[in-house]
């Protein structure tokens, strides 16, 4: 089957993302890329753990002063739910239901934007209430770098999904764009997994230790 071929429900294969050689290559390549991303975040986590609560003077806010579980919990729920909605989107992609896929991707984007809004509020809160900034301490640098890298990934993931939705809005699914949607959702899951670790290592461990 060719990537440009006009598709119908009858012709639509079980794994449309891996039907063409290009799709197969992207599938393997993107998984490998996520392997590299894992090392990137592992390095950032290690740096954060080494610099946690390392501040220049006793007045500086520490992790236990800053973090509040309700907000972190809300953000976790928003992002976890967005992962679920992206799974629904991929389910509809495999069933060749373009409109429903777009709908669920749209919900994913809204949840992601909600997460991003919370994060902006949170950072703003720390800076103004606690004077905990990127430059105030090694702790601050490590915190904003780790959580900010994740936030940057969220921004990139959202832009990616929105771009795909807009670009393909009029022409529907094909074997050419199915791998693109699939990889964007894979990326979104990865962002979610990283957040689970941030929630545990930064927020939960910040509360107890």
């Amino acid at each position: 089957m060719h990537a440009e071929e006009k598709m119908t429900l009858e012709k639509w294969p079980a794994a449309p993302e891996k039907q063409t050689l290009e799709g197969k290559n992207k599938f393997v390549g993107f998984w490998l890329f996520l392997g590299g991303e894992t090392v990137l975040f592992a390095s950032l986590f290690a740096t954060y753990l080494a610099l946690k609560d390392k501040v220049p003077n006793p007045e500086h806010a520490l992790a236990k002063d800053l973090f509040e579980i309700p907000l972190a919990f809300l953000m976790t729920m928003l992002l976890l739910t967005s992962s679920l909605t992206s799974v629904y989107a991929m389910y509809h992609m495999k069933n060749f239901e373009f409109k429903k896929m777009q709908l669920w991707l749209g919900i994913t984007v809204l949840l992601g934007l909600g997460f991003l809004g919370c994060e902006i509020y949170e950072f703003n809160h720390y800076v103004h209430e606690y004077h905990h900034t990127f430059t105030s301490s090694a702790f601050g640098s490590a915190f904003y770098t780790l959580v900010g890298f994740h936030g940057g990934h969220v921004v990139f993931g959202l832009s990616w999904i929105i771009l795909l939705m807009a670009r393909n809005a009029k022409r529907g699914l094909s074997l050419y764009n199915a791998p693109k949607f699939y990889l964007a959702s894979l990326y979104w899951h990865f962002i979610d997994v990283v957040w689970v670790f941030i929630f545990s290592v930064v927020y939960l461990m910040g509360m107890v230790g």
Partner: peptide, 14 residues
């Protein structure tokens, strides 16, 4: 270039 303190020991860096 951006004023962080990862390696500035005076600010808690390592």
């Amino acid at each position: 270039l951006f004023g962080s303190n990862f390696f500035v020991t005076a600010a808690g860096g390592n």
